[in-house]
Amino acid sequence: MNGPDILARLTERFDAGVLASHGEPGDDALLVSLAALPEVLRFCRDDAALRFDMLMDLTAVDYLTYPGREEAPRFEVVYHLYSVPHNHRVRIKAGVEEDDPVVPTAVPLWPIANWLEREVWDMFGLRFAEHPDLRRLLLYEQFEGHPLRKDYPVSRRQPLIGPRN
């Protein structure tokens, strides 16, 4: 399937859950509501015409200071999906509110989500509900805060040994 067909199929299936879509060749993205996200991901993986059997990347964006997004949720989780049998791609995005940043886990769908979600927790502080082992992935346990959040001070260091420079 090409990009517009993928977006059309998902929009048709999840009419209420789809908030926006964006299509450019090779860069097709769908913004869905957080409530609809688990079903959208499951449909993407299991539908015969889509068959997104590979989670290429799972990451997040902090839009804290982004112009024009004052009303929108602060965070977005982004899923990059790829289908090996069909050789097509799509991005699924969902907004996450700041006061309760909880996202349903994708580990039952794609096992690689385990470490990707741990990295997002480490860097952005988004919790993944029912994740089997939500610990920091890259940073050390003593680290406080989440460094890729826009309100993490640029000059804040948390050394394990040595002076606090």
């Binding site: 460094p147 993490y152 640029v154 000059s155 804040r156 260091r157 050394p159």
Partner: peptide, 13 residues
């Protein structure tokens, strides 16, 4: 690498 992750000179340790 003036950031949260990097030691600012190993002479600090």
């Amino acid at each position: 690498y003036d950031n949260y992750a990097t030691v600012q000179g190993i002479d600090t340790i």
